[in-house]
């Protein structure tokens, strides 16, 4: 293995392990929201896109309806389609390999793959598969730990698990706020969600906040 190849593998594995361990927070959040350990683990196996998973259990925990939870989670997942669009010509995967590639097309695998661009297309592919596959493995393992842990702990509020979920959303949001404009979008969305809370059914203010994204993203800037 060349030094460059080794460096790509090292980058990919460090992201996979770090992000994978966050699965413990999702496992705990799923059980705290009222999902079973099995259902919580199935989210990580089958949905496998962190923010959407947190959103689905978060909307249910907030007393929202199933449709609102499903729609919010799906909207959060739309960015993965754009990642797939970028990865498809690079990976040239067919059949089952393409299905596997699609399932592990997330922020992290796409991010590491694109970061290898100066090392060439082979390094990009390697980065994608190792980051995606490794994150899948660790995320699922740690989801199980988190779910079993939360089940053993009992009352979620007693252990602060009900605050761990909004903190996780804030932690997912934070690194995205790279420009003043994006910070304005975040603060406007928070204010909007607070204002509409009192007159929309529980769970709906979350998906309604998409109007802020549409309004502020419509024109050129």
């Amino acid at each position: 293995m060349t030094d460059e190849r080794r460096q790509t593998v090292r980058d990919a594995l460090s992201v996979a392990v770090t992000v994978g361990t966050y699965g413990v927070a999702f496992g705990a959040a799923g059980v705290a929201a009222g999902f079973s350990v099995l259902q919580t683990c199935l989210f990580s196996l089958l949905t496998f896109t962190g923010a959407s998973q947190f959103a689905a259990v978060g909307v249910m925990a907030a007393g929202g309806g199933a449709a609102s939870a499903i729609a919010t989670a799906s909207l959060l997942g739309t960015r993965n389609a754009l990642y797939g669009l970028q990865m498809a010509p690079l990976l040239r995967a067919q059949g089952l390999k393409r299905v596997a590639a699609a399932q592990i097309t997330i922020d992290e695998s796409t991010g590491v793959a694109l970061a290898q661009s100066r090392r060439g297309v082979h390094a990009m592919r390697l980065g994608f598969w190792i980051t995606g596959g490794g994150t899948f493995l660790f995320w699922n393992l740690f989801t199980l730990f988190g779910a079993l842990g939360a089940k053993a702990l009992g009352n979620p509020a007693s252990w602060g698990l009900d605050a761990a979920v909004p903190a996780a959303f804030l932690g997912l949001l934070w690194p995205r706020l790279t420009t003043t404009f994006l910070r304005v979008v975040a603060i406007t969305s928070m204010a909007f969600a607070l204002v509409v809370t009192t007159w929309l059914p529980a769970g709906l203010p979350i998906i309604a906040s998409v109007v802020v994204a549409i309004a502020l993203g419509w024109g050129e800037r």
Binding site: A51, F54, A55, G58, V59, A61, A62, T72, L75, L76, T78, R79, L82, D162, A163, V165, P166, A167, F169, L170, L172, L173, R176, L177, L182, V185, A186, I187, S189, M190, F192, A193, L194, T197, G203, P205, I206, I207, A208, S209, V210, V212, A213, I214, L216, G217, W218, E220
Partner: peptide, 19 residues
Amino acid sequence: RVNALIPISLLSALVVAEG
């Protein structure tokens, strides 16, 4: 442009709704 802002709006609203 809108797609790039959707995660930011939803995550922001989720912080408020959950916290």
